[in-house]
Amino acid sequence: MAESSRSHGPDGSVRSGISRRTFLKHGGTSAVGAALLEAGAAQAAVDSSMQDGANEVLGPGPIPIDLTINGRRVPVQAEPATTLVDILRNHLGLTGTKIGCDRGACSACTVWLDGQPASSCMTLALDARGRSITTIEGLADGDNLHPVQQAFVEHDALQCGFCTPGMVMSCAALINRKPDAGIEDVKAAISGHLCRCGTYPNIFAAVLAVASENRRRGT
C-alpha cells in the first residue's frame, strides 16, 4: 500500500521518492495502528462517565477510557495517571508521536485535540475523553499526504526527523486555520517546537510554499 504512493510529477520527475510508510512513523504498520487508520470512522465516542458519574471516584488502578483517535472510537484500559502520549505510543503502538522533554517544552509530542495543537505529554488521557484526537498517523487522506507533509518532503524540512511529526501537526493546524499564512504565523505556530538539527529555515520554506500555493489558488 504505502510504497505505491511514489508518483510522478507533472514534469515526469519522481516527486518525492519517499513513501508514506517511511515518512510517517511506523505505528501505522502495527495491528492496532492499522486498524486505526482504516477508513470509515466510527462516530465520536459518547462519554458516559462525564454524564452520570458526578461523584464516582475512578482509579487509582486501570479504568476503561473511551477515546476517539483518528476518527475511530478506541476503548483503552489505563490508570488515571496515564498521559495521552503514553496511551498512543505504549498502549496503541502509534509511535509517530514522539516524547522529547516530557514537560511540554519541546512540542515533539504534539497532536490535535478537536483540531487544535496539544502537548500529549501534558494531557492526561482522561482529559481527552469526548474530544477528537488526531495524530500524525491520521493526518494523511488515505495515501494522499497532507499538503504540509508533502511540502516537508519537497523542501527537505527534516534531518533526524524526531521533531518532525510534532512540527507537521502544528504547521498543518496553522494551514487548516489560515491557508495563506505568512512567515510570522509560521514562526508563532512552531514557537514551542525545538529542532536540534536546526531545520527551521526549511520548515518555514515548506509551509510558506503551501501558503503560496493556496494564495495562487485563491483558497
Partner: peptide, 9 residues
C-alpha cells in the same frame, strides 16, 4: 513517572 492517583469529576 507520576504516582498513581484517584480521579473525581
Amino acid at each position: 513517572a507520576m504516582n498513581s492517583f484517584e480521579w473525581a469529576d
